[in-house]
Design a binder for these strands. Structure first.
Length: 262
DNA sequence: ATTGTGGCCTGCCCGC
DNA sequence: TGCGGGCAGGCCACAA
């Protein structure tokens, strides 16, 4: 599903192909997909005639800056959303998402004056479009978080470590698969209170979180982790062979190795 | 503020 | 072969 690596790929796609092209029409057939009180008429009025000057990303939120400096389009992809520009895709298949591309799954699109099309394909409709999204509500991006920032984000929380990593207000961009991968690499029990980490464990977590984000981005997606294929009933830890445990942590299905994740 | 829970969305997959 | 239930998780509303 789209976590940070996928949304970063969408950002690069938008940067390469969507900037500088005047918007001629907005296609917003799904009112549910427009968030923050937005409707089709308002988003059309806001965007027709504008061009995008920059494509940014904070966590899993893709931000398109419109010319004039007074308008930002925020795109959220939920679990099954994909971005296509002129039929160019940024990622391969998405885990948990249908592989096909049906017209009725286009929840939002922009027609450019040159005839090109930017569209969001989202079978499960968990994504959305918002104007001027509240960027300040997001924590520091997981791809660039420093050791001190990560420590500050988690060191006083009584919540389970994994829940804290998933909280976009504190660290932005970590989804379920990257959280499990990073904690598995770092050898940390996802159920541990976040504030229980020692200084050495903070360093380990930072190192492995950054490495997991970088590796999975390079490999092509959040589903490419070393743990991922073992997250299934009967799955064993590829490090030490112990049977993986499964539980709900932070409201999400969580798999971890009881032998080396402490 | 923090933390936890439930619901939303819908296609897919399994067992019957 | 069809059917129904369970499942997937990002995000938000809500409760205490």
């Amino acid at each position: 599903m789209p976590e940070l690596p996928e949304v970063e790929a969408y950002r690069r796609l938008a940067e390469e192909r969507a900037l500088g092209r005047p918007v001629a029409a907005v296609i917003a057939p799904d009112a549910w997909y427009l968030k923050g009180g937005l409707d089709a008429a308002a988003v059309t009025a806001a965007l027709v005639g504008r061009r995008f000057t920059d494509a940014r990303r904070i966590g899993k939120l893709l931000l398109l800056d419109a010319d004039g400096g007074d308008l930002v389009v925020g795109l959220r992809f939920g679990m099954t959303g994909r971005l296509l520009v002129d039929e160019n895709d940024a990622v391969g298949e998405l885990l948990y998402s249908p592989k096909t591309d049906r017209p009725e799954w286009d929840r939002f699109a922009l027609r450019f004056a040159d005839g090109g099309l930017l569209r969001m394909q989202d079978p499960r409709r968990l994504g959305g479009v918002i104007l001027d999204p509240p960027e300040a509500r997001l924590g520091v991006d997981a791809a660039s978080v420093t050791p001190a920032q990560l420590r500050a984000a988690i060191e006083r929380s009584a919540a389970p470590l994994k829940a804290r990593l998933l909280d976009q207000a504190h660290v932005a961009g970590v989804g379920n698969l990257i959280a499990d991968e990073a904690l598995w690499r770092a050898g940390l029990d996802p159920r541990r209170p976040a504030k229980s980490l020692t200084p050495a464990e903070h360093r380990r977590l930072h190192k492995h979180l950054r490495a997991a984000v970088a590796d999975l981005s390079e490999r092509g997606g959040s589903h490419t982790g070393d743990l991922r294929i073992h997250r299934a009933p009967g799955g064993r830890c590829p490090k030490d062979g112990a049977e993986l445990q499964r539980a709900t942590v932070g409201g999400r299905t969580t798999w971890w190795c009881p032998k080396h994740q402490r």
